[in-house]
Simulated assay, not measured.
Amino acid sequence: MQSARKQLLIASGMIIGGVSAFFLFLYLTGHDPDESPLAMYEWMLGGALIAPGFYRLLQWSTRPDRRSPWGPRATKSGTAVANGLPPETSTIPANPDKPAPRQSGASPAEDGKSVGAPE
């Protein structure tokens, strides 16, 4: 997990560094956005400066052993999807206060329980 977090920090740093380098280039060349919009070569230079960081970010996001630094994602059923593992191997327990969903498509009146009556 440490390696995945390190790769994420490297990718984020490369993106921030590319944006900073682009703004430094605009400052050094004396470009004033109030006078004229960016030319095509300036847009291409900006894209070339931040593209390696986004490439690293894409590599990080497609790693099979990647783990989110914010923990596993929770799903609607209360179980967790941790790094593509099936829910039975996750570390977040299901909600014990929530009743289990019905297996059949029967309504409460059809399966012998009256609606609104205490169980």
Rank of each mutant, 00 (worst) to 15 (best):
D65A: 09
L58I: 15
S3P: 06
A11Y: 00
S90N: 14
K76Q: 12
L28G: 05
D97G: 07
N83E: 08
G18H: 01
G13S: 09
P101G: 06
G30D: 04
N95C: 03
Q7C: 12
L28S: 08
K76M: 10
P52W: 00
L8C: 04
Q59V: 14
A21Q: 02
M14A: 13
V19A: 14
P52A: 05
Q59G: 10
L58S: 14
R56T: 11
G17E: 00
R73C: 08
G78R: 01
N83H: 11
E35W: 09
E88W: 13
P33I: 06
L8Q: 06
T91F: 05
W60N: 08
A109L: 10
G112T: 02
E88L: 06
H31Q: 08
E42V: 04
K6L: 14
T62E: 09
L58V: 15
A51R: 02
P118Y: 04
S61A: 15
S90I: 00
A80G: 07
R73A: 13
G71E: 01
R63W: 07
E110A: 07
D97M: 11
T75I: 04
G30R: 04
A48T: 06
R63F: 07
P108F: 09
W43C: 11
L38R: 01
D34F: 12
A106C: 10
A74C: 10
P101K: 03
M44F: 11
T91H: 10
S68P: 02
D97W: 08
L26S: 02
E88I: 04
T29N: 06
Q2T: 15
R5W: 15
G17F: 00
A80H: 03
E35G: 09
K76C: 07
W60A: 08
M44H: 07
G116C: 02
P37A: 11
G46M: 02
A51V: 03
G46C: 03
P37F: 12
R5Y: 14
L58T: 14
S20Y: 09
A94I: 04
K6S: 13
W60K: 02
G30Y: 06
P96A: 03
P99I: 03
S90R: 05
M14D: 01
R5P: 03
A74R: 15
G18K: 01
G112F: 03
V81P: 00
T62H: 08
V115K: 11
W70G: 10
P118N: 12
S12L: 14
F54Y: 10
S107L: 15
P72H: 05
S61P: 04
D65Y: 06
T29Q: 09
P93G: 02
A11V: 03
R63N: 10
S107K: 12
P86H: 03
T75S: 10
L57Q: 06
G53P: 00
L28A: 11
K6F: 14
L57G: 02
Q7H: 13
A21D: 01
G47S: 11
I15S: 01
G46T: 01
V115D: 10
T29E: 11
S12M: 13
T75N: 13
N95E: 01
S77Y: 08
A21G: 09
A74L: 15
I50A: 05
L9R: 12
R56M: 15
E119N: 12
L26K: 00
L58G: 15
G71T: 03
D34N: 14
E35Y: 09
S90G: 15
D65V: 06
S68T: 12
P72C: 03
P37N: 13
I92A: 04
G71R: 04
Y27N: 09
A117Q: 14
I92G: 00
